[in-house]
Design a protein around this nucleic acid. Structure first.
Lengths: 352, 352
DNA sequence: GTGAAAGCGCTAACAG
DNA sequence: CTGTTAGCGCTTTCAC
């Protein structure tokens, strides 16, 4: 039993004195095999510690057992959790994960999408870098099912799992307004992606409902990175008419906002109120705690993977979209301002 | 140009009026091809938007273009960063990443190792769940190179990239001692893994150098999880002779320690000094800041992947081990203690 | 400079 | 119940 690098199904067949067909049958437990033959095959497998080549199997089946996961960055805790959730479901169904970071770069993303097609993966879960420009056509052509998470893809209709962004932004904004703030800034991810666009929408909607004319100088859209959040906050705080509250439109932006506040030695909520969209695991350690809308990330990842599994299994129904409800976690980053009921002069109106 | 699902090399050959051999030659840019033939092949490729099947290629080569990454959990920020670093280097060299979470479970880990072998991946980067028990033999037999990161694997000698754990724990402990603490607790990952064992060693060494007899009731080893850190801290703080300082042996444990401290409304460093091994991206936001020893995670991941690439390229030198230097980040979680030289009457003893 | 043919390891008709 | 055979898409001798 020297260690010949690897044994093949033929080695097993030879040793068991049967054909490869028979071996294949016992391996996949399909087709008829006599007890005797099975025994001998199993024994041969044992003896050689034979393991079928997954590569050959995939090749033969013209479909691999991989799920492609294309996200912007694993280091973003949101995606980290998403990856984990997807992975758990995937491995439970004998699929493994091919991980790609697009870094929000359309070229990179295109490359990876093409790569998944070239690889004939079983399915792809992706978070499109752009609502309008990302195209899953290459996968579509190769009949590889796709599920979009966190963001929509307009060019190719696919199953989509995302947060109810409007509701999340809306309730967060309402929360700020309820504490008497009127000069409220919003720092948001680009509206080229679903989350950015919808969160802006929810923000604006809440402002309007409260009869507050949003100051366009207080609304910023950008890369959705920590650095963007940080710089924008600094810019905002440099103004003579600074906002009294900031709505941070995603987890990284929130991080940047907090960083800037720290750099300026400002206190939350006394000097500035802050709310963020998306919770991060360590946030409860912060003092004061930051009020956020949390996303059910694990559920989203699991669901996305389950839908993908159904598609792989042949589900042909039209694509559906699932919107998950956010969960508001109220902490003390806005409480500072005492009054629920403020009088407001100037033409318009009461807070809600 | 209807969308036949996928074209093969034969379709291209037929359309270009050449043999598959020629097509293959222009694809891989090997062997002699006349300018004319090349032109026609390229044109056919274009026309059909043909893309070679990576599956077939891998199968033919009997080696895939995948790098297996077996870590305990992507959601642990340390591994998240490691994944990212490995991925960047991998993709730059046309490899993609197969991600597996072992959850520190030996069975799961064994399964994944076998899986990587079955998949004939090009190489594996892993962080062994156990120094003594994890075996890469299956990969060894399949001649698949392995690089171990963060932890050693004793059963199979492989290239290893890890932190100088002893130095890190030692300097952290020294830092605490320098501030006058003598009742110092250590909460560490299991000594079944390299990091746990070596960090304990560094801790003990520093204590000994300072002439402090470590109280064995203050040294705990366990799962290395946040929950372990949290519960152990509570237990420690329940004692009548509580420690005045805690050394948290990894990032999750640090998180747990801080959580427990928060739950008890204790103040750092006044009520308790804390140091942690391993930095996390958000730690600088904490007030007070926690003094930690940071690991050069990205460098570790990149290096591991580079070493792996050399092995894949055929490097046959004996396995080497690279130990990376930690970087001490001194913040204010220990500073509270004013004096390097405290008097201690031992019958009882004042708190800090 | 070019192509025919064999074969990577496996599975699935199909025939016995 | 079992084996023979063909072939998945690609690369690579080896002739020409």
């Amino acid at each position: 039993m020297k260690d010949k690098a690897t044994f093949t199904i033929r080695d097993v067949a030879r040793r068991a004195g049967v054909s490869t067909t028979t071996v294949s049958r016992v391996l996949s437990n399909s087709g008829p095999v006599s007890a005797e033959a099975r025994r001998r095959v199993e024994q041969a497998i044992q003896a050689l510690s034979y393991r079928p080549s997954r590569m050959a199997r995939s090749f033969r089946a013209q479909r691999s057992q991989f799920i492609g996961l294309i996200i912007s960055d694993v280091e973003n805790p949101f995606y980290t959790s998403l990856v984990r959730a997807v992975e758990d479901v995937a491995y439970a169904h004998e699929y493994s994960l091919l991980l790609c970071n697009s870094d929000e770069d359309l070229d990179k993303e295109r490359t990876y999408i093409q790569f998944m097609a070239d690889e004939r993966v079983a399915g792809v879960i992706g978070s499109p870098a752009s609502e309008a420009e990302t195209s899953f056509a290459a996968l579509f052509d190769a009949r590889i099912p796709v599920v979009s998470v966190d963001r929509r893809s307009m060019r190719t209709p696919v199953d989509t799992v995302l947060l109810d962004n409007v509701a999340a932004a809306h309730s967060l904004t309402q929360h700020i307004i309820a504490h008497g703030h009127r000069r409220i800034a919003a720092i948001l991810p680009s509206s080229g992606i679903t989350s950015g666009r919808e969160r802006l929408c929810g923000f604006l909607q809440a402002m309007e409902e409260a009869g507050i004319e949003p100051d366009t100088n207080l609304v910023y859209e950008g890369k959705g990175s920590e650095e963007f959040g940080r710089q924008t906050t600094h810019m905002l705080l440099d103004r003579s008419d600074r906002p009294t509250a900031i709505f941070a439109g995603n987890n990284l932006i929130t991080l940047g906002v907090l960083r800037a506040i720290q750099e300026r030695r400002l206190r939350v909520p006394d000097d500035l109120a802050v709310v963020g969209l998306d919770e991060m695991p360590w946030m409860s350690l912060l003092a004061p705690g930051i009020t956020v809308a949390a996303q059910p990330i694990h559920e989203m990842g699991q669901l996305a993977m389950q839908i993908l599994l159904e598609r792989i299994a042949g589900d042909r129904r039209p694509p559906r979209e699932v919107k998950m409800a956010p969960r508001l976690i109220i902490r003390s980053s806005v409480a500072g301002r005492p009054l629920p009921e403020t009088v407001s002069f100037n033409g318009n109106n009461k807070r809600r």
